[in-house]
Design a protein around this nucleic acid. Structure first.
Lengths: 224, 224
DNA sequence: GATAATTTGTTATAATAATAACGAATAAAA
DNA sequence: TTTTATTCGTTATTATTATAACAAATTATC
């Protein structure tokens, strides 16, 4: 019998975040290969698409198991399934979203129409003008009914699309409701508050600053 | 005289991307310190806020120059300015955005109201229903007028909020128009097309998969 | 004014990540 | 059937990144 966490399922215990960051990319390129009708791929070809090295490709997969076959390579379908398993894409996590502004609405639509693992079951806002309106097929609820909703429904994940100023207090409330995983679009570091939570940050302003840095650097180099 | 690229401006030539990724975070925490009325900070306190080590803080800054004072620490205002300089936040880059959907609209608002370095001067879409409507104070233009617009206006950066299927062709068009830097929200790796461009990717679906992985992993660990 | 306490900048070390090398397994060719 | 060409999985090496250690500079204290 294979239990979750069983050694048979994987090889390494502590996977480095560098490897994890590459997994969705592998998944994406494998999907493309499948669409192109390619059934088998070797580490070199995959590396070329990923702008990586064959060595790294092989070692990345080796963290989890032996997915390939010597002399042949990897089955595109098989490898796709393995990565799906590793990432847990077959799981279904009920999620709520707080903040039905521009980004909140965009993310709500993304969650509802372009994603399977997270199922958006509630949207909340504190703006009277937004409450009652429809976003991604759901009616925006008052933030005041958040507690009751979370007590009546199992909520695994919260998506935070609120301003920085509201993030800390809101996180406190959600943590007390037992929510331990967050997709965080607010410009605030939740991880500092509670070390035992899982947070995936999308800091758009950090991203824009890095773009600014790289443009500035490249134009300076050109001028030299 | 200090020229750009002059050794006086910095110390290291090749800054690692790990350091660059931390810079916006430093900037953020320094802004918070300034708001709290704190004028000076030492590497240890800053490290604590950043969830880092004093050693790393000192070494990060040392890539660019000597910003602190032995026995005292760093001036919050002074350090903020230095990071602003390094990141090039004082620059003003004209930008266009393509794809006025949900995410496009959200990003357009972010660019217009919560950012200074990029100035949004044009929004384009190919959807007849969107052309002519107003987004972030600008009128959405037809994608057919993109070429003419770019020839009449200096455009430094393009923000891509289009579906994966449209990204490659669009990037080709923009590259021909001389645009070499991209804030890319489409699920496609532009860098593969043209190695000489600057791309900052925001791959939301990669982000969501990583969140899924970490939740799945943490729930499996709990069950053991 | 001398000494102790801070705290930086820098060098040395340790830890991590990426690449290269190579044996073992498989398929194709001779 | 044997040999050759592939290609993985794994180990060894190199490169990169993070941490620790310590001298030099500054301030505060005695």
């Amino acid at each position: 019998m294979i239990k979750s966490g069983d050694k048979q399922m994987g090889k390494k215990d502590n996977i480095s975040s560098s490897v994890i960051q590459r997994l969705p990319r592998y998944y994406r390129f494998l999907s493309e290969l499948e669409k192109e009708g390619i059934t088998h791929v070797n580490s070199g070809e995959l590396a070329q698409r990923m702008r990586s090295t064959a060595s790294q490709v092989r070692q990345d997969f080796n963290c989890f198991g032996e997915f390939g076959q010597q002399g042949i390579g990897y089955s595109v379908k098989g490898l796709t399934k393995e990565i799906e398993n590793i990432l847990g894409l077959k799981n279904r996590y009920p999620a709520i979203l707080i903040g039905a502004g521009n980004i909140g609405t965009a993310i709500a639509n993304q969650l509802t129409f372009e994603n399977k693992c997270f199922q958006l079951i509630g949207i909340f806002d504190n703006d009277e003008n937004k409450i009652g309106s429809e976003v991604a097929g759901l009616t925006v609820q008052s933030i005041l009914s958040l507690d009751e909703f979370c007590k009546n429904n199992h909520v695994e994940t919260a998506v935070l699309c609120v301003p920085k100023t509201a993030a800390a207090e809101l996180a406190h409330q959600l943590y007390k409701l037992g929510i331990k995983s967050y997709w965080n679009f607010s410009h605030y570091d939740l991880k500092l508050l509670y070390p035992d939570i899982v947070v995936e940050n999308v800091h758009l302003s950090d991203s824009i600053m890095q773009l600014c840095f790289r443009i500035t650097q490249s134009t300076n180099i050109d001028k030299q």
